[in-house]
Amino acid sequence: MSGVRSVVKKDFNDALRSRRLLALVALFVLFIVGAEYLLVEVIGGEVTSAEALVVSLLFPTMLLVPLIGLVTGYKAIAGERESGSHKLLLTLPHSRADVVLGKLIGRTAVVFVAILAGFLAGGVVAFALLGSYELTPFLVYLAITLLYALAFVSLGIGISASTGSTSVAVMASFGAFLLFQFLWSFLVGLVDDHLFPETNPEFLQAIAQFSPLSSYLTGINRFLNDGPVPDLPYYQEGWFAVLVLVLWATVPVTVGYLRFRSVDI
């Protein structure tokens, strides 16, 4: 484990000094606080409960968290290979698994710091604006958002481990962002229309749920907004959403590792 630990420490220190990352954190905090201010002060009366406030914050988190995750992840390994600093990393006793896992933990820590900063600022402002609110929904919201973030860090690191070129990594990350944030449901719908014009098969609806965004929104809906809903199909359940996010958090980084493990560097 010493290998993983030293990679994490080095990487966290290094990433914290990156200006781009600080800019992202600032942007995130600004978005959260700004959205809250708008909702409460400008739109007013509508926001009466903490849950409503949380839901109104969904837009900044669902869009910005993936960006922060990918931007933090995509250069993690490809960037070192491109510059040559990976030679320092790998002449020291780190296995390639140490490198991938260490990078995943280090970058996740950085992203979590960013998100916690945003939520902390958001919490303080919400308290100031509303006077009071319940803590639990806020924490549940935070937990699901962290898992959502982890999914994108894993995707970014997985991409980064698969290529020695940061330009390939950035294009792949951007492509993945567009595909899963904006095009996924549309594409699944397209397939549905063409292959099964008359019906709406269940497995396709389940596949539609496989984007991190859908799972994130489903998770928020099940765990925060609804009471128990009877007769939900399994792919609309909260546990399914969490499972999909966990898959996102583990599969891309594993695939990236398998490629990185066997490549000449």
């Binding site: 030293s6 080095k10 220190n13 290094d14 040559g84 600093s85 030679k87 320092l88 020291l92």
Partner: peptide, 16 residues
């Protein structure tokens, strides 16, 4: 053909 970590100090490199 290595490259140092530009944002880290000499001490941090050796500490690594």
């Amino acid at each position: 053909a290595y490259h140092v970590y530009e944002r880290l100090t000499g001490r941090q490199h050796v500490q690594f």
